[in-house]
């Protein structure tokens, strides 16, 4: 059964002690208008009785099965709403594709939510429109129906949806309204603090493993045009690849292509790669992750003997930090 929280509204004075005590679940709050304590998210209540103990006037009685507290706490802690980003980058359906690309570039994101969370347009959609020469058409024509998730769903459910659909972002709804967005990265971050539930498990990554285990073979490009690069990436199903120009080694990704569109470059202009110091494939994966975190990049060129390979954050996630049914 769900815990029942009885609040004596005759004596409750809205002193915030229960709100303070409910630090983990954050489900009891003082209503700003009525100034009463109120259970705002009953599904999150773990029945831990912290509020009952905190109330200076004994106004609260919690009826719960105490053996269920740890189980409920695990569920509460893995709710999507706790990890989703409140910062939403939304677009106007009437914008042109080019304006959309500018907005993505300015905000540093890979997708725009439009139509109150029902539609989403990603970098790939924007680039498709560009290649087809329709960068001045409205965004809405290239958007897709958004796959959304409820705020009270668990991050494991979010991860499952992302894997099944092969997508990286889910708009989060609270009571039918757009409330945030959760990305694959958010889910992975969440997985490091939650424990698996429902008989599934997360296999943690071993930080001492060699980079070579995760680095993938990618085509190394030289000086090519934006159009050539796009066709190459699309053909190989890649989000990024390695660039080698004489001694310089760098990266080029579809985000760079979106940026090119946003800054008004043409499809026939040369690509503008980001020059990065590569790492050796014999180094530990932890070092690579540290570099990627520090520079806020998703890919890294890897020197593997004579060859140049690429390490992508998605590969690490796909291969190592997965949830598997036991």
């Amino acid at each position: 059964m769900d815990p029942v929280v009885l609040i004596d509204v005759d004596r409750c004075v809205g002193c915030y002690m229960c709100q303070r005590a409910c630090a983990l679940a954050q489900c009891i709050e003082i209503n700003e208008v009525t100034r009463f304590a109120e259970v705002v998210r009953p599904e999150d209540c773990t029945g831990c009785m912290a509020c009952e103990r905190a109330c200076p006037y004994d106004c609260i009685v919690v009826l719960s099965d105490e053996t269920q507290v740890p189980v409920r706490a695990k569920v509460t802690l893995s709710r999507v709403r706790r990890y989703s980003s409140k910062r939403l980058v939304t677009g106007d359906p009437g914008w042109t594709v080019k304006t959309g690309a500018e907005e993505m570039m300015r905000e540093g994101v890979g997708s725009l939510i439009i139509m109150n969370g029902t539609k989403i347009i990603t970098e790939t959609d924007v680039l498709e429109a560009w290649i087809a020469g329709k960068q001045d058409k409205p965004l809405i024509a290239f958007s897709k129906d958004a796959v959304t998730i409820e705020g009270k769903a668990t991050v494991e459910e979010a991860l499952r949806i992302m894997l099944e659909r092969g997508i990286g972002h889910l708009p989060v709804l609270e009571r039918g309204k757009l409330a945030g967005i959760i990305s694959l990265r958010d889910v992975l971050r969440a997985s490091s603090v939650t424990s698996p539930i429902l008989g599934e498990s997360i296999i943690p990554i071993n930080p001492r493993e060699k980079i070579e285990k995760y680095a993938i073979q990618v085509p190394v490009v030289g000086r090519v045009t934006n159009r050539e690069l796009y066709y190459l990436l699309k053909e190989r199903g890649l989000k990024a690849t390695v660039v080698k120009d004489r001694e310089l080694i760098g990266l080029i990704s579809i985000r760079d292509l979106t940026k090119a569109l946003g800054t008004g470059r043409s499809l026939d202009d040369m690509i503008e790669p980001r020059w990065v110091n590569p790492v050796s494939s014999q180094e530990q994966i932890s070092r690579a992750i540290a570099i990627m975190m520090e520079h806020n990049i998703r890919h890294l060129p890897v020197i593997h003997g004579e060859e140049i390979r690429m390490l992508s954050i998605k590969e690490i996630a796909k291969h190592a930090v997965w949830i598997k049914a036991m």
Binding site: V13, C15, P56, Y57
Partner: peptide
């Protein structure tokens, strides 16, 4: 965080009327 007005402290009693002055 101490709510001495409601709980009292080692020297004084808290509000016996359950009517905290905060509201």
């Amino acid at each position: 965080t101490t709510k001495d007005c409601m709980r009292g402290n080692d020297k004084f009693h808290g509000c016996p009327w359950f009517a905290s002055p905060g509201s």
